[in-house]
Amino acid sequence: MFENLLFPFFNGLIWALVISLVALGLCIIFGVMRVVNVAHGELYATGAILTFIFLQNYGLNFWLAMLAAVAIVGIICALLEKFIYRAYEGKVSATLILSIGLALVLQQINLIIFGGKVTIMPAPLPGAISLLGVGFPAYRILAAGISVAYLILMWYFLYKTSLGLSVRATMQDRDMAAGLGVNVDRVSMLTFGLGGVLAAAGGALAAPIVSVHYLMGADILTISFIVVIVGELSLKKAVMASFVFAPLENILSVFFVPIIARVISFILMCIIVAVRQTGLIAKIRRSE
């Protein structure tokens, strides 16, 4: 029994890392610009698709392909921020509609360049590693390592550099940061580019694990949204929430059909959000 749960648990941890990359991207974009970026799932898919295309059609190796894909998506995102979102930053509903439009455009572009097929990408690192007696695909461990490296880089950037300090300042109070001489527009552009980089990196890393498809972003987008709001829009809590969500879902899928496992974990997360957001706990405490 215990061995049966070990594999989904490890798998969940690796998913948690990929999810926290994507969710972190969503979270900084929301934090700096108040944009609920529905197009984020599409960026994730674009990352995976570009990696696949560079790998198959241009003969690059996986790492170069991933780097190129991530860089392209990052640059596209920075431009999108400048030309599409900037005028509406701070308005949740207007930017939501813009991002729905953008999601439709990106989704169809992905469909045009990749087609409607579901393709399995060969793992760049074949073989398996034994973990506590459970055979585990080597690539997934490597993917986990790369995700950790991305997370550490993000942490270093946000908490140890002066540019990161301006990003965090803009997240807390945009006007105040602008008043203190932070170039808020440039910070927004950088943040959106960074968000795109994280989404594309998540997509590229996940591509050999799941199959590549132009709609592959839909699932991860919803999961990242859940993680972000359970984490109450804070970067660290979002990462923590993804470490609760992904192993939970993976372990539940041992007992239920995968979709039902996902529904149960969605509902659990929804309850957490509802209880915390509507101040239920505070009300109960007050009545005691």
């Binding site: 929301f30 108040r34 609920v36 529905v38 949740v92 509903s93 939501l96 919803t222 949204f225 859940i226 972000v228 709001i229 829009l233 059909v257 979709i259 039902i260 996902r262 529904v263 969605f266 509902i267 997360m269 929804c270 959000v273 509802a274 957001q277 509507t278």
Partner: peptide, 28 residues
């Protein structure tokens, strides 16, 4: 009763999650 109470962005995200729950259940 619970979604409308939430702040704007939480409201949007909650509706997205709920519609996916509905879709998964209906498909399943």
């Amino acid at each position: 009763l619970f979604a409308v109470r939430m702040e704007e962005s939480y409201f949007v995200i909650t509706t997205i999650i709920l519609v996916w729950i509905g879709y998964y259940l209906a498909m399943n």
